[in-house]
Amino acid sequence: MSIRIDAAACIGCGRCTEICPGSLILRGADGKARLRDVRDCWGCTSCLKECPVHAIRFYLGADIGGRGSELHTEQQGNILHWIIDLPDGTRRDIPVNQKESNRY
């Protein structure tokens, strides 16, 4: 389980570098974000929520049953959209209203 940073989309703002609870994201010589070691990600998804251009994708490693889908988030007002791109090209968008409590 880890993240993939899309170098083409990254604008080098440094917000993910600032926020990662493990200080795992560096800025390379080109100013773009780079993960130090794919194995060190905890999976908290803080960087996804922080990225202003949705350049960070989260996935589950094959060793924990991952099937190659990628997750990212997009914020719209109080709604946090959790968007999953499946390997077959389909997309699931799960909107979560942040002003609503969990029911369980």
Partner: peptide, 13 residues
Amino acid sequence: NPGFSRHKMWYPP
């Protein structure tokens, strides 16, 4: 999961 997902722990690594 000591391999690729070694930090997929419950408590923060």
